[in-house]
């Protein structure tokens, strides 16, 4: 069910190559050096070149791994990163709750969508800060709680207090204009 890391690497390679392409395109429109010999375009080009170089190395490694996969299922040399991949994967294995990884991912997507909607409401719709924030905290808090119904009103109250408190301090004392 889990993707082979080499595929993830290949996706990374594609994204990085696209980014490097952007760098080259952007650099091509820059004026020639004016005050010093380097100019604005030098660093984007250097970085673009480096990114392509690194991406190719990773791509070659990944393809090599995918080919060799038929021989053994062991994920080869890159099982190193214990520190930068904390709890998420490990605790999924340890956890004795019955929920599947899929529900977890759904919840993650739900939180992310809420976050986007929250900012859309504040920025584009320019809705009032307090109710929007309270609603946001309520939804996210509830989604992350084990016992949903009990959590709902707790988070509604908490969200309201948090939003009102922040609003008061920000606008009254600190002159930040919220929404």
């Amino acid at each position: 069910m889990r993707l082979h890391p080499a595929w993830v690497d290949l996706a990374l390679v594609l994204a990085v190559l696209a980014g490097a392409g952007l760098l080259f395109v952007g650099a091509s429109t820059l004026p020639p050096p004016r005050f010093e010999p380097m100019g604005s375009a030098a660093l984007p080009r250097i970085l673009g070149g480096l990114l392509v170089f690194f991406a190719l190395i990773i791509a070659i490694k990944a393809i090599w791994q995918l080919r060799g996969r038929t021989d053994s299922n062991v994920v080869s040399d890159e099982t190193d990163d214990t520190t930068s991949r904390p709890s998420a994967a490990n605790s999924a294995l340890e956890s004795d709750t019955e929920e599947s990884a899929l529900t977890g991912q759904l919840r993650g997507i739900c939180v992310f969508t809420c976050l986007i909607l929250y900012i859309v409401a504040l920025d584009i719709l320019q809705w009032s800060f307090i109710p929007v924030t309270a609603a946001f905290v309520t939804i996210v808090g509830t989604a992350l709680s084990p016992q949903r119904l009990q959590a709902l009103w707790k988070f509604a109250l908490f969200g309201l207090v948090l939003a009102a408190g922040l609003y008061l301090v920000m606008t009254r004392f600190l002159y930040v204009d919220l929404g």
């Binding site: 009102a164 408190g165 922040l166 008061l168 301090v169 600190l174």
Partner: peptide, 12 residues
Amino acid sequence: MNRYTHTTDPAG
């Protein structure tokens, strides 16, 4: 952050 500016406001 600055909810703490005023000690009477424990919101944070």
